[in-house]
Write a protein that binds this DNA or RNA. Structure first.
Lengths: 238, 238
DNA sequence: ACCTGAACACCGTTCAAGT
DNA sequence: ACCTGAACACCGTTCAAGT
């Protein structure tokens, strides 16, 4: 770590080098412990040196987001809009999964970065090429929400960690704790219901990838149905 | 503001009074400017006095979340699970909408609060009472994601603010800016496509409530279809 | 025993002094 | 002209000194 900093010290700073170091630091220690001072130290540089290349911390975060979004595999041309969207979303999920802080960072910024806009634009293009009206495409993009970028909101996942004390850093989701099970019987009943393979009796947690694809397909199937019946917002043909 | 603090100064501090003041402060000035020092000043109290009632800032945030979740109208008994879920989710949306900081706060905490767990538990109960298997209920809860608490992820919304400079504080979503329209033609094409009423030509933004209900119904319709065909995770009957 | 001021270990960022 | 140390205005939280 220290000798690496020594090696890098003489190579000149650049926006790109700063962004890559910031991503690596957030990957390693979490976004909440990423600070300008901290990042500067990793780069063997005085904190103020960073401000030559990024205006402030918000711009740094925007840049980091676009590094991650830039890792998403380009779309594979396919006649079928549904398969194209599905593969691209799963590619986004792979990229975002490599950087666990990225999803929350994207949601926290109240303005989309150029990289996110480019991604959304190309995805809209897939729907349009598939024959979707601008009207339906608009609503469909809203309905997909952040799922279009490969992440869901982890709200329900947080319940699996309900009894966790958070002392020993990140760890796999624990089983639903007994005292919570008594107070929340319905949650306890379904917590163990998703053992997709019989071997996972000890850790009854569910398969995140399965859940994601389940929700994605639920949405895509519904979208396909609306598209087939030429749905418009003025008169629902349901 | 100052005379209000004077009046409150002699009424004794309590966890409840702290939480309500924190919610009010976050509502008024945003969650990012809520600090312990700041909140203490609003209460006419020295910062350290707060620590008698909340262990730390994280616990304060958890308490604030449960104040908001506690404002959700209780479920209305109805024979129809679909209508029950729909009404409850829309009730959650109304409560969360009154506190714009709450959605992100809930997502940021990596453990569910007791109030959120209670809400999820009762919602699971609605599905179970409607005849859903534990298996399907589990996946369905994941698929709904944070939408079950009445908020979506605003990812696509951020695109509408793409050209915004953020200088003058919170403001309604601006029209898609011209220079962005050139770079992201597909987004520009659908940005204006959602004028639900003809009067909104000047501000072509879309109707958030419509988009939310569109997505909610898309999910509920898909869920109903799976339920009708007795879907199980082992053999998809699609 | 309770309360609280000062202090500690941090932040992001400004700015003026150094080269 | 460029770089950077010190400083400013904040944080959350600890702790010891006061009552």
């Amino acid at each position: 770590m220290a000798e690496q900093a020594d090696v890098l010290r003489r190579t000149p700073l650049s926006r790109d080098r700063i962004l890559r170091a910031a991503v690596a630091l957030a990957d390693a220690t979490g976004i909440e412990s990423l600070s300008m001072r901290n990042l500067a130290q990793d780069l063997g540089v005085v904190p103020m040196a960073l401000y030559k290349h990024v205006a402030n911390k918000d711009e740094l975060l925007d840049g980091m987001i676009d590094v991650v979004v830039g890792e998403i595999d380009p779309p594979v041309p396919d006649a079928d809009w549904k398969r194209t969207v599905r593969l691209r979303v799963l590619a986004a999920r792979r990229a975002l999964s490599r950087h666990p802080w990225a999803a929350l960072a994207i949601e926290s910024r109240n303005t989309a970065t150029p990289g996110v806009l480019a991604y959304l634009d190309s995805t809209v293009g897939v729907f349009r090429a598939g024959g979707f009206s601008t009207d339906l495409t608009h609503h469909v993009m809203h309905a997909m929400g952040s799922r279009i970028l490969g992440f869901s909101q982890e709200l329900f996942d947080a319940a699996r960690r309900a009894g966790r004390s958070g002392a020993t850093g990140p760890e796999p989701a624990a089983a639903f704790p007994p005292e919570a099970a008594a107070r929340f019987p319905h949650l306890a009943a379904i917590a163990g219901a998703a053992s997709h393979d019989e071997a996972s009796v000890v850790t009854p947690g569910c398969d995140d990838q399965f859940e994601f694809e389940f929700a994605l397909d639920l949405l895509l199937d519904g979208i396909e149905r609306l598209h087939r019946q030429d749905w418009t917002s003025t008169g629902r043909a349901s």
